Computed example of a mutant assay.
Amino acid sequence: MSNEVKDQVLTAGFAQFPKGTSVFETQKVIGCILVINTKTETIIEANFTFISETTNKFIAALLVDEKLDNGIEPLLNKMEKQILFPGKNAVMQAVISAYRNYKEEIIDKATQKS
């Protein structure tokens, strides 16, 4: 493994958009893909499965460089204030799911080492 990705993990989470919203009619599910530096607990890359590149770029910019060592609440508060469309709860749920997958894996590895 190259040193460039040695301390990084790729995690993903998914959530369904609410039925009756226009985004549900075109997309149904949102995926959140995060690359996290495990030493600094910092999101170094983020991507979403939105059709719109503008939406992808904006939400990814909210997440990149965010530290996760104090949990995910500060990030969710930021998203709550800056994302203003009907599917934002699904987006936030996808981020929560990706974060939980990351934390579970990190905790599992730490438990196995001890």
Results as ranks from 00 to 15, higher is better:
F14K: 14
V91H: 08
K19P: 02
E73I: 14
M1D: 03
E25T: 07
T111S: 09
T21I: 12
P74I: 09
E41N: 13
K113Q: 12
P18F: 08
T11S: 13
A46W: 12
M1N: 03
T49E: 04
I30N: 04
T49I: 06
G13S: 15
I36C: 10
L34F: 11
I72Q: 04
T11C: 14
E80R: 03
N101C: 01
T42Y: 00
V5F: 08
F17W: 00
F85V: 11
F24Q: 05
I30F: 12
K6R: 12
Q93N: 13
V91Y: 07
P18E: 09
F24V: 02
E66G: 12
L62V: 10
V9K: 04
I43E: 02
K81W: 09
I44H: 04
L62S: 11
I106W: 03
Q82K: 09
A90C: 09
S52N: 13
K109W: 05
V35K: 13
I106F: 00
D7N: 15
S114W: 02
T54H: 13
I51S: 08
D69H: 11
I107R: 07
P18K: 13
Q93G: 01
N101I: 07
K109L: 07
S2P: 08
T111D: 07
L10P: 05
A110I: 05
A61G: 14
S22G: 03
S97I: 11
V23A: 15
Q16I: 01
T49W: 12
A15Q: 03
T42D: 07
T42R: 01
V91S: 11
I33R: 08
K39Q: 10
F48M: 10
F58Q: 02
I83D: 08
K109S: 03
F58I: 02
N101L: 03
E25I: 14
G13I: 10
K19S: 05
K78Y: 03
